[in-house]
């Protein structure tokens, strides 16, 4: 069972920018947490702290009871992120010169996953997210909504224990928004899901919610 534990987190941007103070956050497999707040409210910063992309000034984040992310060597932290985490970035972070298929299989390639099985799962996700028609199209030629769905599918292909999604529905119409959330929650049934959004409707689909007003200092 996957667990995420963040304790006594404290972070402040250099130059006296805003900061975060989070006393405790614990999440287990099957739990979904929506992080709510207005734009520029620190949601992404919190997500980056929880994934080890930013290191806190104080406090710690532990995955599955292991070493705090901040104390892991850089290469081990990267390997952990690649193996255990599925990340949906706000700006999608696709490689434009790769096709949709190649983007979806990219983390799996670096993880050394068996291409057949990973390919099947990627294809299945592409069909569910309505992007299978673009399977061999370069990501650079897709619309914003299509790119966002590719980013979501990429995060799910290797079936990670921890799912972090930053505004995964911002560029989608209501119908597709619903499908993406359904898929994330479905994947989250066996993983820890943290979903950053400013959309109350999306947040309402998650059993647990965290308001940035409560953690911002």
């Amino acid at each position: 069972m996957a667990t995420l534990l963040a304790e006594h987190l404290s972070f402040r941007y250099p130059g006296g920018g805003f900061g975060l103070e989070l006393e405790r956050l614990e999440l287990q497999s099957g739990e979904a947490l929506a992080v709510l707040g207005s734009s520029g409210g620190g949601k992404t910063t919190l997500l980056r702290l929880l994934t080890g992309l930013l290191l806190p000034e104080a406090g710690q984040v532990r995955l599955n009871g292991g070493e705090p992310l901040g104390s892991l060597p850089a290469d081990s932290l990267r390997a952990l992120r690649l193996r255990c985490m599925g990340l949906v970035f706000q700006d999608f972070a696709l490689l434009d010169y790769l096709t949709v298929a190649e983007n979806l299989l990219l983390p799996g390639r670096f993880l050394g996953l068996e291409p057949g099985a990973a390919g099947q799962r990627a294809r299945h996700l592409a069909e569910r997210l309505d992007i299978a028609d673009h399977w061999q199209h370069p990501a650079g030629r897709l619309s914003q909504g299509e790119r966002q769905r590719v980013a979501v599918a990429r995060a799910l292909v290797h079936e990670p224990e921890f799912l972090f999604a930053d505004e995964p529905t911002a560029a989608l119409d209501p119908d597709r928004r619903g499908r993406v959330i359904d898929l994330l929650l479905e994947a989250g049934s066996s993983a820890c899901l943290i979903l950053v959004t400013h959309d109350p409707e999306v947040a309402a689909r998650c059993p647990r919610q965290l308001r940035m007003e409560d953690v911002r200092s």
Partner: peptide, 16 residues
């Protein structure tokens, strides 16, 4: 740089 940062964020090793 953005492309390499993406790969870095996804967890691809520096050596790779």
């Amino acid at each position: 740089q953005r492309e390499f940062r993406t790969l870095d964020d996804l967890g691809v090793a520096r050596g790779a």
